[in-house]
Amino acid sequence: MHKLTTKSSETLTSNDIENLARRFGGKSEDYVEIVNKQKNKQTIKKYALLNEIHRAVNA
């Protein structure tokens, strides 16, 4: 039988954040996501649709 593998998402959902806050203390409202701006820019440039959306939103 083949082993199945899954790729976990790197994006936290609101439920993930609430669960982390409940588990480790603190408030979910205080959560701030740290992002890699350079990686985001590279992704936007790589995909034409994202690039179009980005330009339209920032016009």
Rank of each mutant, 00 (worst) to 15 (best):
L49F: 11
D30H: 10
S9P: 00
V57Q: 11
D16Q: 05
K39F: 09
K37S: 09
I53M: 11
S9W: 05
N40E: 08
K27G: 02
Q42G: 00
N36I: 01
T43G: 11
E10N: 04
S9L: 02
L49P: 01
S14D: 07
I53G: 01
K7A: 07
S28N: 08
T5C: 04
R22E: 10
I53P: 02
S28M: 02
T11K: 14
T11P: 01
N19E: 13
K37D: 09
F24I: 01
Y31A: 09
I34T: 14
T13C: 04
N36Y: 04
A21G: 03
Y31I: 03
H54T: 09
T5M: 12
N58R: 14
I34H: 07
E18V: 06
K37L: 11
K41E: 10
K45D: 13
Y31F: 15
R55H: 03
E52H: 08
D16G: 08
S28C: 08
E29P: 00
V35T: 14
H54K: 11
L12P: 06
L49V: 14
H2P: 13
N19C: 06
K7S: 01
G25K: 06
H2F: 08
E29C: 07
R55I: 12
Y47E: 09
E18C: 08
S28H: 14
D30P: 02
N36F: 05
L50W: 08
E52S: 15
Q42W: 05
N36T: 09
Y31P: 00
K3L: 12
L12S: 03
E10C: 07
Q38A: 13
N51K: 15
K37V: 06
N58P: 04
S9Y: 06
T5Q: 08
T6K: 08
K3P: 04
R22K: 15
T11G: 03
L49G: 03
S8T: 08
N19K: 14
R22I: 04
I53H: 07
N51T: 03
E33K: 15
L20R: 02
D30L: 01
K7P: 02
R22Y: 09
T6I: 14
S8Q: 14
K46V: 03
S28L: 04
K3R: 13
Y31G: 04
I53Q: 02
I17T: 01
Q38V: 04
K41A: 10
L50H: 06
V32T: 14
A59D: 05
Y47L: 01
N58H: 12
N58Y: 12
I44S: 02
N40F: 13
R55C: 00
L50K: 12
H54C: 13
E10A: 10
T43E: 10
H54S: 15
K7I: 12
L4R: 09
R55K: 15
Y31S: 07
A59H: 05
K37I: 07
T11I: 10
E18F: 01
L4P: 04
D16R: 00
H2K: 07
G26V: 06
N51M: 07
R22M: 05
S9Q: 11
S14F: 00
